[in-house]
Design a protein around this nucleic acid. Sequence first.
DNA 1: CTGTTAGCGCCTTCAA
DNA 2: TTGAAGGCGCTAACAG
Lengths: 349, 349
Amino acid sequence: MTTRTDELHSADGGRVTITDVARSVGVSVATVSKVVNGRYGVAPSTIARVQAAIDELGYETSLVARSMRGQSTANIGVLVSEFESYSAELLKGISEAIAGTGYGLLAYAGRRDDVTESGWERRSLSRLARTLFDGAIVVTPSTLITGSFGIPIVAVDPHSGPEGPHTVDSDNRTGAHLATEHLLALGHRRIGLLGGRDDLESARMRETGWREALDAAGIAPDAALIRVVGYRADLAEQAARELLSMPAGERPTAIFAANDRSALPVLDVAAEFGIRVPEDLSVIGYDDIPEAATASPPLTTIAQPLHEMGSAALTMVLDLLHGRETERHLRLPTRLVERSTTGPAPAEA
Amino acid sequence: MTTRTDELHSADGGRVTITDVARSVGVSVATVSKVVNGRYGVAPSTIARVQAAIDELGYETSLVARSMRGQSTANIGVLVSEFESYSAELLKGISEAIAGTGYGLLAYAGRRDDVTESGWERRSLSRLARTLFDGAIVVTPSTLITGSFGIPIVAVDPHSGPEGPHTVDSDNRTGAHLATEHLLALGHRRIGLLGGRDDLESARMRETGWREALDAAGIAPDAALIRVVGYRADLAEQAARELLSMPAGERPTAIFAANDRSALPVLDVAAEFGIRVPEDLSVIGYDDIPEAATASPPLTTIAQPLHEMGSAALTMVLDLLHGRETERHLRLPTRLVERSTTGPAPAEA
DNA sequence: CTGTTAGCGCCTTCAA
DNA sequence: TTGAAGGCGCTAACAG
């Protein structure tokens, strides 16, 4: 233990650099570097002096400078467009799984205006890959990630199928089936759809599942009952207004929203319109984000195993990183979570 | 629009660097740099050729290299020890507030073993500050963050009071009062405490609030009913086993856990022991993380305005960054959320 | 055992 | 209008 005069710093309040340490001890930066990295060939007495100065000054090697030098960074990156419930749940799963691996986690969301332009995932990857992390997990990339970035990459809920990087997703088609059949079983016939981002495979599959289930029940999907809201709450609210403004006989008696984020506003609009849920209108979402359970009434939804998907993605990057065998595409199952927003179809007037 | 032959990359699968672009166009890197940064003094025709190459190759300037050169990075950092519900909620609030500011968000959790040693926040700050982000928010720092890192820093739920960096927290003492008084009002007299991390101001204040409320009711805190579990689920489970193993007349009829994470396991242990909640035992938590609402039975708790705390912290760093006036310490209110784990004290045998 | 040199990718003088 | 040179903090190879 040193006396810890504590943070003498390099005068001007900047960071303490390896140069500050070297100067303070009177050795070269190379020597300090060797001490820091435990390299052989430094006299014990020198080590002690350097170490003392390091403690004294509170020096810590810069992650950035080190990784620029071409080392491995011992960090895994997670690229998201935004920190919202969906990505946050994934992140929790990733974080749990990373414990004990010796890697740190770096989650990045670029500037919002940058992220709204398509291709943000490729840009972020270009800006950060290799230089900041050794492997990356990209959440809901809307663009096919082509080319190599020099590091292993895993996509969660990706843009598209077999080509492109390794992926983790859940069984969207079956999930949508489950949702629609649940509604059908309750006697609903006019089932509206709030479609997701059409640049995402998941959204397409959920729509497909919805169509197929309707077909199987001998119901033709009604174009008037479809709105593409891109997984977004604001567009969903707008769409809900339109749908619920329709005359009683034409209005859908149930709505399947392609994600919870877009299902939740439907509840608000219904309340505003005096439409009772689930008596007059059933609503079912997708994802099972935490807000689904706390909504009032609690939202019936299709649960994706978000934590598992996160930890599976992490395991996958790590496997790739260490040259181990991995599946190219991992698909996890979904399940119906019945809460309070779905009920028997109302008797027609 | 270029023809997008798409990602020709520099052969070996590494990143595309400014040098690759320069070579491909036949100009110097300096020129490319000027084009990228929109500096004056480049011939229009050259700009066009360089731009074409950039699009062609998919070049993106490296965040790391640029920031090493001493630029601002246009990123705000968030340092957490782990991505769990508490920090995730904060992150959502920060993320909402950052929209439209032109800043990106970089959340970092270091290697787990590194993080368990105290001082991780200072280390992470040293490793990343200045070089990776322009300002930082540190979540639950257990150590006083001293010295300057060359960037503005805001601590959320910090180690201690007035000294140190700017802080955002909530009114822990009043919150604990609220919790304890709620229990008291229900007739409870033997109220156990699952204390938090004693290196955190929040934990100390919650314990203080608990004591004060008991005092005010003329009840002497019983040392046998106190367990310090450091906000951790595993230790809380252990403590719950001990507490609930006590004979019926000595066992607490209610437990106040200093955070939800440690309250939740109590529910499990009670179920395992055949102790009914809330008939035989009342449990109240603190934080109101999403899991509190989905627990069974749903957990009564003290809600902290996590999203607001996050966005307030962000506003604060930004103010600091732009030299605007800010409060040094912002304290937000808490509120009681009654759910189903608290009820009247059982009649004594 | 220690220091010198070179270079990671980038940007900014300063000359040409 | 362009390019050469220097340096940000760090590490690795190579001299001494």
